[in-house]
Amino acid sequence: MSDTPVVSAGARPKSSMPWPLMVGGLLVGLHLVIALLSLVWTPYAVGDMVGGRLEGPSFVHWAGTDRLGRDLMTQIMIGSRIALVVGCGAVALGALIGVTIGVLAAFATRTLDDVLAAALDILIAFPTLLLAMLIVASSDGASLWTAILAIGIAGSAIVARLTRILAKRILSMDYITAARISGTASPGIVRIHVLPNIWPTLIVNFALQFGLAVIAEASLSYLGLGAPPPNASWGRLLQEAQASVYTAPFGAIAPGLALVSLVIGLNLFADGLREAADPTRRRSR
């Protein structure tokens, strides 16, 4: 009697899109459009002193000007680009290293697994800032690349730890044993079963990591460990606005708003993804 088919005929019903996914997607999409636009057009050329010093927002300078009379909107647009480039690069690097180490640890013998787990804990406890300083010190100065490298490596430890736990859970399933018995070697098991099953959770984590990476990039730039001028990172804009924050608060508010909107957008997007990927939500209909 339990053998009667319960498969629903026809296509699966369309799921409504969770609102965080939509709002988050819009915010991130807006930054993406601005970043792309900045490649071909900005209100003014980036280094030009085009107005008075520390002007407030106006029709000619939407976000006002900085202490050298440069247009802030122009710099914030370029800041979007830097935030997205460093965020993407760091998450991609972190994912590549993290997923590889995590999967290897899940397959490793007990001793190697213990060693890897301990190494990851140490790397997670290691401050990103210190890592960035080490990387900058051992290369020829801070750049977009040193920022990507530092943030990516720091993130990879978290990705690796998560991947290891997720993969171990999948590896304990009967269908993995069945696949092994039917002669699938480990690389096949990773490709066919492990990665597809841990992917939904990982994607959500990547979106969250992206938000953290954007904040980390701003922090590094604020401290002078990010991309050097003329790369107008939001962190550097904040740092430059700090001296005159009482007389011209908008110089800090504008890049702050840009940073917050992108990070909130990424976090909402991650939440929405989690909801959309939740199997109980997808299955209980």
């Binding site: 009967d174 269908y175 018995i181 002669g183 699938t184 070697a185 066919i192 079963h193």
Partner: peptide, 23 residues
Amino acid sequence: VPLRGRSVAAVFQEPMTALDPLM
């Protein structure tokens, strides 16, 4: 690896985890 599958196969107790949920 080559011995498995050709010589032996297995079916387990728990039908819920016997198949990959995403395939």
